[in-house]
Amino acid sequence: MSGERERLPSTEVNVLKGHEGAVLAARFNGNGEYCLSCGKDRTIRLWNPHRGIHIKTYKSHGREVRDVHVTQDNSKLCSCGGDRQVFYWDVATGKVIRKFRGHDSEVNSVKFNEYSTVVVSAGYDQSLRAWDCRSHSTEPIQIINTFSDSVMSVSLTKTEIIAGSVDGTVRTFDIRMGRETSDQLGQPVNCISLSNDGNCLLASCLDSTLRLLDRGTGELLQEYKGHTCKSFKMDCCLTNSDAHVIGGSEDGYIYFWDLVDASVVSKFRAHSSVVTSVSYHPKDSCMVTASVDGTIRVWKS
């Protein structure tokens, strides 16, 4: 979608209803065909967002499920939540393959690495933990606890682990270099999102500001304001062409900013309550949003 002007997905196509209570995250899978959601009702649900069909429900979590991620080959899931465990699921059978226990507190975010061999989880216990999916070891491969507050969000590249924390830092752990880079933002970081070219990092801070950082230099490139984000964990993302920044708001609005001049390009009321999650289709101009009101909405241009 690299047209002269990317059309923003602002038309509601489908409403995915099924979660009881708040939906805490909604994520597209690798090719954007399916979408996964998880919520306060302790379930993970698999949907076909384009047809608006609920496919499967994964139940095993003991408390709310905060984040979910699926491997590139769509064969495995990982999820985490209030029960302090990271679950490793088999997508087809819906069974839990492994539970990784070790976090001392709730787990906020999980991600697979590129080869789906490692799950990295970020917890309220101020640590990042890397779990091995290959071996049967129950111990984490590595614990990173240089954070001084709850780690809210984690992202992986081929060589790096990037995590944002409430202590106001975004830390990049470069495995290849053996180096930790800490970018102090001065505000609790809620969610981090990488640009598609991998050069920039979007960090959603709790002062109702999204900040765009240059990953190479740590420079602050732009700040996006206008929405409300003060007390909830809310996602943010960039469009496929990296031309726009998308963020939800606590009043149920979705905001689109221009990446470069930080002007609000568009905003519309998507949900009746806090928008917890925004996920952009990997290829098309399509977006799913999840909200506390219990619905997941699919938007297309």
Partner: peptide, 8 residues
Amino acid sequence: YPRREEYQ
């Protein structure tokens, strides 16, 4: 801010 620090 932002301030960058690097560690091993």
